[in-house]
């Protein structure tokens, strides 16, 4: 089985959010970057498990500059067999999906597994776009993925529960919590990751359909109005009359 896992590099959840260039660009100064959690914990780990069980290979692909190689090596340490980095700044989801599709269209992957969304731009777009570019079935928000032969059985999140679906491979899957458990790379994995292949590939030209005019920080909360625990009626009154929430 041949599996492709697109990975993003994103600011750590606890990073401060600030902007530069007239509030048009994210300020990367003093920011700790990480592998996007749903890509690493769920998509990559499940891909590695499937290959451990069935044979085959896991390729990770990232669209980004050379500074990302350390994170790509981490993905290799977790268990991916090889890596591809498209050497360009990841402008937006359409740009990223187009680059990955360009790579994937000649590689005949059985499965492409993305994380459900990145924690920076929260778009949840790359999986869907990639599926359309490759004309493959796509199931998103998947918490369980089993593969038997050429058929995948998946559980996907729907309103108030899950839906169990079956799809013949090849397909694209958007992974969320439940699909795998976070793996900490061991020393052997880290050693092996240094010599695993990492191909650096130039980007293809892509139209820019949507541009960011500016970023803004939301107005900070002014502080909670504290209500005495013995006076819940006051909370109900405020929720009704002041907040108009009930």
């Amino acid at each position: 089985m041949k599996i492709l896992v697109p990975i993003s590099i994103v600011p750590d959840t606890t990073s401060k959010v600030a902007f530069t260039d007239g509030d048009t660009k994210y300020d990367k100064n003093n920011v700790t970057f990480i592998l996007n959690p749903t890509d690493e914990w769920y998509a990559l780990v499940r891909a590695v498990e499937l290959v451990e069980a069935n044979g085959g290979s896991v390729t990770v692909i990232n669209v980004g500059e050379a500074a990302n190689d350390q994170f790509i090596r981490k993905a290799l340490a977790i268990g991916a067999n090889n890596a591809v980095r498209i050497d360009a700044e990841a402008k937006d989801a359409f740009f990223v999906a187009s680059q990955i599709a360009e790579h994937a269209k000649t590689e005949a992957y059985d499965l492409v597994i993305t994380g459900k969304e990145t924690i920076d731009y929260n778009g949840s777009q790359v999986g869907a776009m990639l599926a359309e570019m490759l004309d493959l079935p796509y199931v998103a928000l998947v918490s369980k993925l089993e593969v038997a032969g050429t058929e995948a059985t998946l559980e996907r999140e729907i309103e108030g529960g899950v839906e169990v679906v079956a799809v013949n491979l090849p397909m694209v899957v958007g992974a969320e919590k439940g699909m795998g458990e976070q793996r900490i790379p061991n020393m052997r994995g880290i050693m092996q990751s240094r010599t695993k292949p990492l191909a650096v590939v130039p980007a293809v030209e892509v139209a820019e359909h949507v541009v960011v005019n500016k970023f803004e920080l939301p107005a900070p909360k002014t502080g909670a109005k504290m209500i005495d625990a013995d006076n819940i009626e006051e909370l109900v009154r405020l929720l009704h009359e002041e907040a108009k929430a009930i």
Binding site: V17, N122, V210, V211, N213, K214, E216
Partner: peptide, 14 residues
């Protein structure tokens, strides 16, 4: 964007 920590204003070119 950024999990609710900021807001982006976007414009279409297409």
């Amino acid at each position: 964007v950024f999990s609710g920590k900021a807001v982006a204003e976007l414009e279409y070119n297409s």
